[in-house]
């Protein structure tokens, strides 16, 4: 990988990340916490950011890439303005999570793991959120929506769109 040729811009985002890395450099095993911070700043972890982290922590790029791709939480692709995460855990499955996800797919005309053309929604799935009592559940951004039905989901999505146009 031609990491050397990657251009790392000098902007506030990178400065903020650098400051965090400086503060955590001496705590043992800082990589995952640094990546959490980086994703918080950039929204996802593109190649440049991973390279920057590797260089600043003085570890191989391959190690950073290996960790990023291992955990569900880290993303390497940009995402829409809102991320819809539908739980497919057992409790949600029993209560009809599949119907929920089919309804979203149809409403937004996208597949799981992709983003709508207008970059407004990204559809993703997750394992259990630990909100099984509310099954079936989805999380949009950081908010939990429970006791879903196909109709209810479509209404929620419409509300989001409405809020945007207003």
């Amino acid at each position: 990988m031609e990491t050397e040729s990657l251009h790392i811009p000098d902007n506030d985002h990178y400065r903020e990340l650098k400051k965090f890395i400086e503060e955590h450099r001496n705590t043992p095993g800082p990589l995952i916490q640094v990546l959490h911070k980086a994703q918080g700043i950039f929204g996802y972890l593109p190649k440049e950011v991973q390279f920057f982290v590797a260089r600043e922590l003085n570890i191989p790029f391959s190690k950073v890439y290996g960790v990023v791709t291992f955990y569900n939480f880290f993303r390497t692709e940009p995402i829409g303005k809102h991320v819809i995460n539908v739980c497919l855990g057992t409790a949600c499955h029993v209560k009809g999570a599949k119907d929920v996800i089919d309804a979203i797919k149809k409403e937004l005309n996208i597949e799981v793991g992709s983003t709508t053309e207008d970059k407004f929604f990204t559809l993703s799935t997750a394992r259990c959120f630990g909100a099984c009592g509310l099954a079936p559940v989805m999380v949009i951004d950081e908010e939990v929506y429970g006791r879903l039905s196909p109709q209810k989901v479509i209404n929620i999505i419409k509300d989001f769109k409405k809020a945007e146009t207003n």
Partner: peptide, 26 residues
């Protein structure tokens, strides 16, 4: 507090330790 990053296998104690050390949770 250390924040996990979503991997079921990290519930296994040695995988959890690997993850705490900042590595892939294997």
């Amino acid at each position: 507090i250390k924040k996990g990053a979503g991997a079921y296998v990290c519930g296994e104690e040695t995988a959890l330790i690997e993850s705490l050390e900042g590595k892939r949770g294997q």
